[in-house]
Design a protein around this nucleic acid. Structure first.
Lengths: 203, 203
DNA sequence: ATAAATATATACCGATCGGTATATTGACAG
DNA sequence: CTGTCAATATACCGATCGGTATATATTTAT
């Protein structure tokens, strides 16, 4: 509980931004939630946009560190880690505070590609996809980047689907699909008529 | 060009809601874009929320009708239609006005599940998934609902991914993944070690 | 003890939000 | 010509938006 005032403000803002949306959250509400005033808020952050960027950047770092830890705690072998990813996503989705992915939501609220909020959100998924690609390489995938992108699509889809309708089993369904895609990407099955059309690696 | 004033207002609102976001669009801007006044706007719509719901409901109907037409124009056999779905998505994403899925964006802007805007958005994907499931049944899938949900995850993921970073080939990548999933769901391959773990149909 | 730095309280700014009141214009029907 | 009704123009409402000015209180360091 030894948070600086700046950290307290950022934490209060983060919770409101994530739970209610960024545009829906006013600076007055943030100051009140942090038990301080707007004056202090504007001492540590130049503007609301600055505070939003701080929120997204911290979330980017925190979430990815937490996520990798969670995966590592569940599995040791890269192959198992690739599947554990979906279990972690599933557990994350199950918490009642879940409101989808903060970065997908931010990109939806700020749809222009050049917008800094949009860019930070975009970069998060670049990093995330790179992490999956690393695991895919360690698994010996024939086309790790393609596999990583495909698994990332499943994950993003599951997040969005769960956000739309809670408890619809998106994570488990994504995992089942992932099992098939991973197996296909690891073993080039003889006689598989698809192996010539679905594997043009484009890295 | 024989639009009613009501239709003109709804059309102007729809374009602004989709291109800039719902919360970011004020009623003054809508009235101006429709070349009318707020007085007329509030004659045909009880409130901004009412207008937003009209936007989402019309979009739901229009988009699904357009989508099914596009798929039918590309393929006749159900198997081919299932793949054509991804081509249509890919072409839709390529237009410069693309700003992601209006329903995913609306669900992000109004994160509370009970919110009417959120509900309409949720129902759109129910309908969409049912359409995919119909095609899966016609293809003779062993577990059409599971396959439909998995393909839906790929599609939603591709939309979100393309919204974050344009021209990253999400639709094509989703299609390659879909080919594998469809094939797996149609032919229970002998010797496939996964066939016992990825097919517990849960309808 | 005192000066300096930090935080609070409060009132205010112009702009915009969603929504309304009122009065005027325009077209069309009897 | 006149009454009706749809549409416009414009000004306004209270509330909230992001952001600031000013003055007071509370810490902290010397």
């Amino acid at each position: 509980m030894s948070l600086t005032l700046q950290e307290k403000i950022l934490q209060a803002a983060s919770e409101l931004f994530y739970s209610q949306g960024i545009r829906a959250t006013g600076v007055d509400a943030i100051a009140k939630a942090a038990n301080t005033t707007k004056m202090s808020l504007y001492k540590y952050f130049l503007s609301k946009d600055d505070l939003v960027l701080a929120f997204l950047r911290k979330r980017d770092e925190d979430f990815r560190l937490w996520f990798v830890d969670q995966v590592n705690a569940k599995a040791d072998m890269p192959n198992a880690k690739l599947l554990a990813v979906f279990d972690v996503i599933g557990e994350w989705m199950a918490v009642p505070e879940f409101r989808g992915c903060a970065f997908i939501n931010a990109a939806a609220e700020f749809p222009i590609e050049g917008n800094p909020m949009h860019q930070v959100s975009s970069e998060f998924y670049d990093h995330f996809r790179n992490y999956i690609a690393d695991l895919a390489v360690q698994c010996g995938s024939r086309s790790p980047k393609n596999l990583a992108q495909q698994l990332s699509l499943l994950i993003e889809g599951a997040i969005v689907s769960e956000q739309m309708k809670r408890h619809s089993g998106s994570a488990e369904q994504a995992k089942q699909a992932a099992i098939v895609l991973i197996e296909t990407s690891l073993n080039n099955m003889p006689g598989n008529s698809l192996s010539s059309t679905n594997t043009q690696e484009q890295q």
